[in-house]
Nucleic acid binder design. Sequence first.
DNA 1: ACATATCTTCAACGAACGTTGAAAGATCTG
DNA 2: CAGATCTTTCAACGTTCGTTGAAGATATGT
Lengths: 213, 213
Amino acid sequence: MARARRTTKEKLLDAAEKLFARKGYHGTSLRTITRAAGVDLALVNYHFGGKQPLFEAVLERRGALLNEERLRRLAAVRRAAAPAPASTEAVVGAFFDPILDFLEHADRGWHSYFSLLAEVNNSPEWGKRMMGKTFNATVKQFIEALMQSLPEAAPQDVYWGYNFLTGALTLSLAETGRLDVLSDGLCRSADVAALRARLGPFVAAGLRGLAGR
Amino acid sequence: MARARRTTKEKLLDAAEKLFARKGYHGTSLRTITRAAGVDLALVNYHFGGKQPLFEAVLERRGALLNEERLRRLAAVRRAAAPAPASTEAVVGAFFDPILDFLEHADRGWHSYFSLLAEVNNSPEWGKRMMGKTFNATVKQFIEALMQSLPEAAPQDVYWGYNFLTGALTLSLAETGRLDVLSDGLCRSADVAALRARLGPFVAAGLRGLAGR
DNA sequence: ACATATCTTCAACGAACGTTGAAAGATCTG
DNA sequence: CAGATCTTTCAACGTTCGTTGAAGATATGT
C-alpha cells in the first residue's frame, strides 16, 4: 500500500488489464471490468471515451515504463563496451532483463500486462497496429544494436532473428500453463528464475547460429 | 476444384477457420460465420451443437492431419539415423517442415489455421486445454526425441527449449505483418522460404546453446 | 411411391452488449 | 460561502448475441 489511494482511472486500468489478459478484448465486457473495479459502468466512457481507448490505455501505461527501462539498459551495455559494439548477449539481456525484473520484484499487475502483451503480439487484429504504436521506436534501436553485435549477419537474418526472439519471449510470458502440463510439473511457467537462466542463452546462440549460417 | 461439392459442415468449418483466425473466438459471431459460409444460422447448432464445439472442430480438423504428418517424418528421420538417435536438426525439421510444406503447397486454409493456432497457443483462455487436447501426445514424442539428440542436456532445458521453439514458430505463423513494418518491407511475414531457411538453424543452435550452458 | 431419416428454413426468445444524456454529488476557485 | 468545474450515479437506448423449436424441404431405403 504505497500509494495513498487509487484513482478511478487506475482502478479501471488495473481491472481491465487483468481481465483483458484472461479473456482478450472481445471476451471481456465493460460491465465485468467496472464490477471488478468497483466503479460505475458509465465512468469508462467518461474517463477514456470508450472500450477501445481503454484497451489502448492499458497497453500504453506499462509499455512506456518498459521502453524507458529497456533503453536505459541498452545505453548502459553500450557504454560498458564502448568503443566496441555491445555483445549479442548484452543486447538481448537489455531487452529481456527489464521484463524479468518487473516480474520478480514489482507488483502483480506486470504479470497480467505481459500475458496480455503475448496475446496482442500474436494476434492479427492487434499485432501490427497496437504493438507498433507503442514499441516500434524502441525495438528498432535494439535491432540496430543486434546488427552491430553481429556484423557478419545479413540484415534479413537479424530481422527474422528478432521475430523468433520475441516469439520465444512472448509465449513464455503468456502464462498458459502449457509447459507445466507437458513436463508433468517438472517445469513451471511462472518460474522467472528458470526462464531467466535459459532465454538469454537460447536466443543468443540462435542468433549466432543464424548469422553463421 | 478437386472436390465435387463442399458439404455444409465443410463450408462452416472453412468460414469459421478464416474468421476465428482474424478476430478470435469472442470477436467472431455465428451470424458472421454463417453469412460468409452462405448457410442458415441455425445449422451451426444442428451440425456442431454450438459455437464452442464448432471452434474445437476447427482446431481438430487440421490438427489431426498435422500430427500424422509430423509423426511420419519423425519416424523417417529416426529410421535414417538408426541405431544412433536422430540429430537435433533432423528432429526440429520433422516438427517444422510439415507446417512449411502445407503453407507452400496446400490450400489457403492452412494459412488461416496456423494463424489461429498462433493465437490459441498464446492465449491463457485456450492455450492449455485446447492445445493440449490436440497436440500433447505428438509433442511429447518430439520432446523425447530432442532429449535423445541432446544427451548432455537436462530435461528442464529441453522443456524450456521446446517452449522457446514453439513460441518462435507460432509468432512467425501469426501473420501479423509486424515483421514487414519493422524491416520497412525488407522481410515479409508471408515469405515461407525465408522462414524455412532461418527457423531451423536458429532453433537448433539455440537448443545446443541451452544444452551446453 | 411411400415412409423414414436427414437436413434446412424461419421466426423468435431472453440476455448481454457498448454507449448516452440528464441529474446528483463532490471538489476546486475566487 | 457561492459559483464553476469535475466526477459519479442512474436509467435507458438500440443492437447484437447464442440458442431454440416447429415447420418445411430433401434425400434415403424398401
